[in-house]
Each structure stands twice: as structure tokens, then as C-alpha cells.
């Protein structure tokens, strides 16, 4: 029998877990800064606390660990929530935020900047802006290719996504081939990571994540209806085609923003929604906020692991997410298989 958890309790608990994970992320690191000192440093930004710590300790907490932990949470939340929404829209468990080629497009954009150096003047944001623009451009191409009159059949959309994604990644591979001594820069970007991004990137991503989350939560009822098919949703009074457009645009913006700041971090967007569904069921009114929190927690912890495990080396975060998440997911599936 399916046990239904009280959605509100789950959300409150996850908020606490996220807060704890983020605290852990701020406290743990190569340089040993005590918990109280770390808290005091954070507190000093809005409270008059006398500074009995070094300037380096302050930069480590406020300029390195804090933005990094927040960025991890934002990227995790963005990818997980977009994955949840796309899986329902496409009624396809294999759907993830990168499904329609946004990441491939973004990778091409980033690689172009890294190889050719176009985009001078935008400074440090040249790569993320190019990634963002190319990601959105890719989705637009996919959408226009798949459009039949006023409608966008989901299957066509998926297939066009695969085709365009293949084209884009071929472009990236070609650039990799040409890149010669810039190779490692592209490879780092492709591996994804949130290391050393700083507050600029947090501020870049934050509005997208907040806006997207509010929007997705507001259409959670439509998403519930869409799970049972587009025709059925239309009969329930949902303007499916326009809703689909809104979802695609929103998902593209949020994913595009996440990819542009963090590169391609796989697995979170695919698996988190599944884990959450197995846990609390498919109702989007809970699924959306819980996926968001869960994705944030996962990525904060993965980021922590990525910098602690082989310190001072940093592992690419995507390796951690896949290494830990995939077996856990398999375990969940097996367990559910036995229950059914």
C-alpha cells in the first residue's frame, strides 16, 4: 500500500536538512576554521561582532565557501526541478533538463568563446553568457523544427532534440579537435563544476531559480493533469499548447542559467525527481518543492564530497553525483520492485 506522507512536514524537514548541509559545507574545508568562528564570520556581515579572525579566514568563509555552497544549492535546485517538470511534460522517465540539447548548445557556445576568444569586453561573464545564449538558441531551433502549425508534438520535439543535440556536440567535438592547447579549458567546462565561481554567479542564477520555481509551483496542477496525457489535460480545461510553451521557455531559461554557471552536471536533474517520486508520490504540488530542496541538498553534499575526498585535489562534481546517486537509485528501484 502506498503511504502518503504529509507534504508540508516533508518540506519543513528538507528545509532543515538543506540548512544543515549548507552549514556543513561552510564549516568543512582545507583550512581548519572552527564552527563558532565560521558562524561569527557570517554573523559579522550583519551584526557588530568584533573580528578576532584573519582576513584570509574571512575570505575563505565569505568569498569562497559561502557563495560556493549557495551556488551548489541553486544549481541542484534548478536542475532537479527542471528534470521533474520535463519528465511529466514528456511523460518520459528518461527526460532530464538536458534532453532537448540545451547543454550541448551551451557547451558549443562556451567552447566557441574559449577557443576563439570572442566576447571580449564582457570579461569574466563571456563564457556563461555565450553558453546561455547558445543553450536557448538550441532550444529555439529544436522547437521550431518540431513545430507543426500551432502544435508541438512531444515525440517530434524529443527526436528533434536528439538530432540538434548531436549536431551541437559534433560542433563541440570539432572545436575540441581544433582547440589544441585550449583543450583542457573546454574539458573543464564540459565536466561541469561550481568551483571558484563566486557571488557574481550566484546573483546571475538566483533570479532564474526563484522565478522558475514560483512558476513551476504555480502550474503544478496543470502538470498533474499533463501526466495523464495532453489530450486528457486539454479536456480538463488546460490550454496544453500554450502551457507547453510556457514550460519549455521556463525550463530553458532556468536550465540555461544553471548550465551557463556550472557547466554540465549530469544525473541530478534525471534522478532526483525519480527519487522524490518514489518517496512522496507524483503529485507536483509536493513533487516540485521537494525536488527543488532535494536537488539542492544533493548538490551541496556532492560539492562537499568533491572537495574533501581527495583534498587538496577537487574532483569534478558530476563524478560524485553519478557515483553516489546511481547505485542509490538502483537500490530504490529494486526495493520498489519487491514491494510491487
Amino acid at each position: 500500500m502506498h503511504t502518503r506522507l504529509n507534504g508540508r512536514h516533508v518540506i519543513v524537514i528538507l528545509c532543515l536538512v538543506l540548512a544543515a548541509a549548507m552549514l556543513l559545507g561552510v564549516v568543512v574545508g582545507e583550512s581548519r576554521i572552527s564552527f563558532t568562528r565560521a558562524m561569527a564570520i557570517i554573523g559579522s556581515t550583519f551584526l557588530p561582532i568584533p573580528a578576532d579572525w584573519s582576513q584570509s579566514e574571512e575570505s575563505i568563509i565569505l568569498l569562497i565557501r559561502l557563495p560556493r555552497v549557495i551556488l551548489a544549492a541553486l544549481v541542484g535546485a534548478a536542475l532537479a526541478v527542471c528534470g521533474a517538470v520535463l519528465q511529466s511534460l514528456f511523460r518520459n522517465p528518461m527526460a532530464d533538463p538536458f534532453l532537448l540539447g540545451i547543454s550541448n548548445g551551451a557547451a558549443l557556445g562556451a567552447s566557441l568563446v574559449l577557443v576563439t576568444g570572442v566576447g571580449v569586453g564582457v570579461g569574466i561573464l563571456g563564457v556563461p553568457l555565450a553558453a546561455f545564449a547558445f543553450g536557448l538558441g538550441t532550444i529555439y531551433i529544436v522547437y521550431e523544427l518540431a513545430r507543426v502549425g500551432n502544435r508541438v508534438p512531444v515525440t517530434t520535439l524529443l527526436l528533434c532534440g536528439i538530432a540538434v543535440a548531436a549536431f551541437m556536440s559534433a560542433g563541440t567535438s570539432f572545436l575540441l579537435f581544433l582547440s589544441g592547447e585550449n583543450l583542457h579549458q573546454i574539458v573543464f567546462w564540459l565536466l561541469g563544476g561550481i568551483s571558484g565561481r563566486g557571488w557574481d554567479y550566484v546573483l546571475l542564477l538566483l533570479p532564474f531559480v526563484i522565478g522558475g520555481s514560483v512558476l513551476f509551483f504555480s502550474i503544478s496542477r496543470s502538470l498533474n493533469a499533463l501526466m495523464f496525457g495532453e489530450e486528457s489535460a486539454q479536456y480538463l480545461g488546460i490550454e496544453v499548447e500554450s502551457q507547453k510553451k510556457i514550460i519549455l521557455v521556463a525550463v530553458s531559461l532556468v536550465t540555461g542559467a544553471a548550465v551557463s554557471v556550472s557547466g554540465i552536471i549530469g544525473f541530478v536533474g534525471l534522478i532526483t525527481p525519480h527519487m522524490v517520486r518514489l518517496w512522496i508520490g507524483p503529485d507536483h504540488r509536493i513533487l516540485i518543492p521537494v525536488s527543488l530542496l532535494f536537488g539542492a541538498i544533493l548538490l551541496v553534499l556532492a560539492d562537499l564530497a568533491s572537495r574533501v575526498l581527495l583534498a587538496p585535489n577537487e574532483l569534478p562534481i558530476g563524478i560524485i553525483t553519478a557515483l553516489c546517486g546511481a547505485p542509490f537509485f538502483a537500490y530504490l528501484l529494486r526495493r520498489r520492485g519487491r514491494e510491487a
Partner: peptide, 19 residues
Amino acid sequence: VGANFDFPVADYVMLGRTP
């Protein structure tokens, strides 16, 4: 209608209230 989700019947019927 593909109903492959663990969506409880009561919630499913409540979808009819969407409009």
C-alpha cells in the same frame, strides 16, 4: 489513458475540478 503513476484515486478524481 496511461495511468502509470502512483497517483491516488481521490487526487485523480480531484483533477476533474481543475477548470
